[in-house]
């Protein structure tokens, strides 16, 4: 079970309290009705599904109930950082500390 830091509660809590809510930073158009078919397709259907760093939304469902964003490595499952909804996509990611090589 993963530990996830809720940026609102400012606490690491067990995964059971959270629910994943799909990829982050996909903006809904202010002029939704006027979107082209192609743009709607990109908005609604196309997801990056990367091997590596993903920006995704989580909800602290059984806690403060807030949606927030997270950066996670899909290979190691490690959370690199979490941040509040509405904050810009971070450009400089912190290095994960415990990827150590023994001896």
């Amino acid at each position: 079970m993963l530990l996830i830091r809720c940026p609102y509660c400012e606490e690491e809590r067990p995964e059971l309290e959270f629910r994943n809510a799909g990829e982050a930073h996909i903006a809904r158009s202010a002029n939704m009705a006027g979107e082209s078919d192609d743009d709607f397709e990109k908005f609604f259907f196309i997801r990056s599904n990367p091997k590596g760093i993903i920006y995704e939304r989580w909800r602290h469902m059984h806690g403060c109930a807030r949606f927030f964003n997270a950066v996670r490595d899909t290979v190691t499952d490690k959370f690199i950082m979490t941040y509040k909804a509405g904050e810009p996509k971070p450009s400089n990611l912190p290095k994960i500390s415990n990827e150590v090589v023994a001896k």
């Binding site: 629910r19 809510a21 809904r28 939304r57 909800r59 469902m61 109930a65 807030r66 949606f67 909804a85 509405g86």
Partner: peptide, 13 residues
């Protein structure tokens, strides 16, 4: 409820 909260918190804050 989740659907409403999602839009309220993230699209129409």
């Amino acid at each position: 409820m989740n659907h409403m909260e999602d839009y309220l918190q993230t699209e129409f804050p």
